[in-house]
Design a binder for these strands. Sequence first.
DNA 1: CACATATACGACCGTTCTAGTCGCAGTTAT
DNA 2: ATAACTGCGACTAGAACGGTCGTATATGTG
Lengths: 146, 146
Amino acid sequence: MFKLSKKADYGLIAVKHLALHRGDHAFSANEIAEEYGISATLMAKVLQKLAHKSIVAAKHGSSGGYQLSKDPSQISALEVISAIDGPVLITSCVTNHGNCDATERCSVKEPLRRVNESILNVLSSVTIAQMSSEDPHEPSLVALRT
Amino acid sequence: MFKLSKKADYGLIAVKHLALHRGDHAFSANEIAEEYGISATLMAKVLQKLAHKSIVAAKHGSSGGYQLSKDPSQISALEVISAIDGPVLITSCVTNHGNCDATERCSVKEPLRRVNESILNVLSSVTIAQMSSEDPHEPSLVALRT
DNA sequence: CACATATACGACCGTTCTAGTCGCAGTTAT
DNA sequence: ATAACTGCGACTAGAACGGTCGTATATGTG
């Protein structure tokens, strides 16, 4: 019911960690997992997905690990989330791919599509760089114009 | 992964239906369910939840049914969704209720809280009345100020 | 070259959440 | 009184998610 998966959560934590330690050596999944008290194997799995989408770069071998492949200001929260959880769709039938058996009759499809768009806007406007800035009294990352 | 539950979907459909037929007789769960090809018992369950939160008013007995208890412009999508699915929280630990075992170390909690707030804003700014207006070329219900 | 250490990948379980059903009690119009 | 309807809670089946494990593979080091 409208919740981020834990894996996406972990992904954001990992990416933010890498952003804060940019320029340092590569971090192994183990290292990051220990830092936040998360299962190492699970963190590895999450990082694999991020590597697959080229958000982080994996380096094999001993003293290997992961590094950001882009600048933190160029990575949006949406990228990280959808890399792990797949595309963000608030309903199953916003994509017109006909999985909704009542496409004709369903009257809320179009309004929800617009809401979905708004949420995508919110998520894509938040960058990892913003999430890493420690400024706590920034009033609000995104505000609404009605 | 960030999806509206089907029940919330059905709830929105039902509320919108009632909004469009305001002033008519009360609609039974059966009637609405048939109209959209949805399981009647499930629709009944959804409407019960909406009635519990006083979004719709139930009328017992024969020729009974449901009616909106408020003006469609006074009902937000957020109200309907959270009535059915519970509070909208994108992570399990935004509420400070300490179910996150790594509250200290978790570095993404605060940024995500802000994102969550933005989404709540989006959802609460969309009313049933807006969803019922048939204007298709309204550019966007909500836009972003960055 | 051989070894230690790292990721890559996929199969695999247990638990939790969701969709959907059923039966019974309570309420109202006729 | 009775028929038709909702209210409500327990219940089942199935999918999704969180998390683990084992194996294959790549790489730096002695």
